[in-house]
Design a protein around this nucleic acid. Structure first.
Lengths: 167, 167
DNA sequence: ATTATTGCAAATATTTTGCAATAAC
DNA sequence: GTTATTGCAAAATATTTGCAATAAT
């Protein structure tokens, strides 16, 4: 809502990466004869601005602060479109809300999810990916996508909890 | 349904492990004054028999083949009880159904999920767990649980698909 | 002019819950 | 006898869909 908008960042991606994704999306839409509507542009722009792990609800709120008439089915449909185009990835971290983030093919990352405050942190660990491939090979399994999520308590919440205990 | 029942196995766990889990459950229920009803016994016995990655639907079907009057809310409530006691673990593999399996504290395992046939295979890889702990340490993150799932195509489905392509 | 898209409301699908009846302690 | 548990139906939750109106091509 009253949040500070930078209008520059798209999460941890560089502007060049974000631009590439936008071009990917354009060509995807062109190929299928999909149309560029006011709503889609607004939703997509808002998402690229806010990025990182946003929920439909939160995205809709931001979108409606600009155009209050946008329906939530449109947001769902637009995010589905983005997902199908490969430009964004869906995540379900178990709180019941689907979250979306821009794809980053170069640097695949996974997630730490704090069960206390909900904060989501990204991590990269190529060695894990390597071992994972080796495991898949053992079973002759062809990996198309994967999910590696650590659930627990983030550093800040641990500190906060320790303080609370003392008091 | 007409499936072969061994009446022995509880997935990959040994009988000793399964027995320990049952004792854990008993003491958990005793401590909280929870009651052993006919329905609960039936549901729990059926689950211990069938085990591994079963869904509520499938479990209810098996239970109803013995006692057709059991309601599905009872199955949900019983599985929630088992989960809260720590005896079973819930998994959501993304097909919309929650699956349950007996906890195995000794040998933690993760999953390969075939997107073609739905087969779920377990794997163990202590080195990944180790690296994972190291990652968590980097962030001062305290891991309480984790999820490592590889989605793709299993060996059999790859073969089957190759055959189909030829034909 | 054709047809993709929108917004609404209704439908889905899984899980949860309120409540009166029942059964375990 | 007290209170946890059951089964049913209704509610809750997130997402999807049918459809008439609208807008992009």
């Amino acid at each position: 809502m009253g949040s500070v908008k930078l209008g520059v960042s798209a999460g941890k991606l560089t502007n060049a990466d974000a631009d590439r994704l936008r071009r990917d999306l354009d060509s995807y839409m062109l190929k299928r004869g999909l149309r560029s509507t006011e709503q889609r542009r607004l939703i997509i722009d808002t998402f690229f601005d806010v990025g990182e792990h946003i929920t439909i609800d939160s995205l809709l709120k931001q979108v409606r602060s600009v155009d209050s008439r946008v329906g939530y089915a449109t947001v769902y449909r637009t995010m589905k479109l983005l997902t199908e185009s490969g430009v964004v990835q869906e995540h379900k971290f178990g709180d019941g809300f689907t979250r979306y983030e821009l794809s980053d093919e170069e640097h695949h990352h996974d997630h730490l999810i704090c069960l206390d405050c909900g904060k989501i942190t990204e991590f990269e660990e190529p060695l894990i990916e390597e071992l994972q491939d080796r495991v898949a090979n053992r079973y002759g399994f062809h990996v198309r996508q994967h999910k590696h999520e650590l659930y627990g308590t983030c550093a800040e919440c641990q500190k906060r909890n320790a303080r609370k205990k003392k008091a």
